[in-house]
Nucleic acid binder design. Structure first.
Lengths: 212, 212
DNA sequence: GTGCGATGTATCGGTCCGATACATCGTGGT
DNA sequence: ACCACGATGTATCGGACCGATACATCGCAC
């Protein structure tokens, strides 16, 4: 998942590790706490070894009025390669079970602006299915095993069940929006390249949120 | 976290790995998907090496009318030791940052019936603080960086924000209940030993649920 | 009698986290 | 003039947990 997220972010602008972490934390703040360096740096090196990203020379075109202090100390700025973009497209569209779990779905959703509607619908529906299964599991436990469980455990299940129900409702709204062309897709202002699809009118006034 | 959960469950009854997994999945179904064998079995062996659990002879007193087929093939039934109980008490009451993250809090909460009210309150409040911080972070992003983010990312943050708000409300109810002595603590019917505290009247008619 | 799904134990590689270490930059205090 | 401190920045190590996989037996239905 980290790989997908890094590739996605680097498509917006070249960045060094520290910056990547901050952006990632902001973008995925609803999903996970904060990305750790212990996974970030090794992944960066793996990606570079695979030719999906390369080191860019500092001062990435932006802010050229302070060119004097080029390559500020040890910073390593990465940028995505053509292979990296291909890989991203492959990853963002792929449908494995992990695409639908909490983290996987969250990351995919965060980069929905870089996919086409068909993919978005497929992922939204896969996620809905998964959450519905979880919901049924919880209902089962609450129904069949209720007397075996203590009140706190029961309360936990009830809370989880409600969260599932809420998320299913949220997903259904999103699915309906996609189907009717009213997707909240504000075609990103990034460094171009993204599939940027169909007409995409104003975002839904409704809001529900996700916190897997 | 797995260690705490295993120790907690084995306090209710001796069990073998497969059973442990099923019970764990039922009890923690609101928190996490399913505990994997890849972590369960190694943890079991670690716990045994540390003297916190031991192998029990099959046919654990229950169901003595079918004693003929004792030790059904390769099953290894574990039971908790006195040291294990001590360790559990230590773990359930301890307050680290990970006690308040999604998984950690969930596991602690699932075993709330085995702690005292003061500990429950401390954990509930720690969790509330953590969720409030997350909530503030999301509000910040939504406020300050809104125009930099695409509509999907924004929608994700909104969903996350609502989930945080809901959880804080839920936690506040639980805290109020604990304070007023109306905790949903149905002293477990397990194999005794648990701290089983104060008077604990009927569970709250209210229900919210948690799904970290 | 035989095939198949549930029961059951076990290992391996991989991903990610948390702690830790270390160095530099810019700013404010004294 | 000095320096302390917090933000910036890169890096590694051990550990927790997952997903895939392998393998064997039990009990039941056909």
């Amino acid at each position: 998942m980290l790989e997908l997220a890094i590739l996605g972010l680097l498509q917006e602008a070249p960045m060094h590790g520290y910056e990547l972490r901050k952006e990632l934390t902001a973008k995925l703040g609803a999903i996970r706490a904060a990305i750790s360096y212990g996974s970030l740096y090794p992944t960066l090196r793996r990606l570079q070894a695979a030719g999906l990203i390369t080191e860019a020379d500092e001062t990435p075109a932006t802010d050229p009025e302070v060119p004097a202090l080029t390559s500020r100390r040890g910073r390593v700025v990465y940028k995505i390669t053509a292979e990296g973009k291909e890989r991203f497209a492959e990853l963002i569209g792929q449908a494995g079970p992990e695409t639908y779990d909490d983290t996987g779905f969250g990351v995919h959703f965060a980069f929905f602006a870089r996919t086409d509607r068909a993919t978005r619908l497929r992922i939204l529906e896969g996620r809905r299915r998964k959450v519905e299964e979880r919901r049924e599991g919880l209902r089962d436990v609450l129904g069949r095993a209720a007397e075996r469980l203590d009140a706190y455990t029961l309360e936990l299940q009830r809370h989880g069940l409600e969260a599932c129900e809420r998320e299913v409702r949220w997903l259904e709204e999103l699915i309906a929006n996609e189907r009717s062309g009213r997707a909240p897709a504000a075609p990103h202002t990034g460094t171009a390249g993204g599939p940027r699809d169909d007409t995409s009118p104003p975002p839904p006034g409704e809001s529900r949120t996700e916190r897997p």
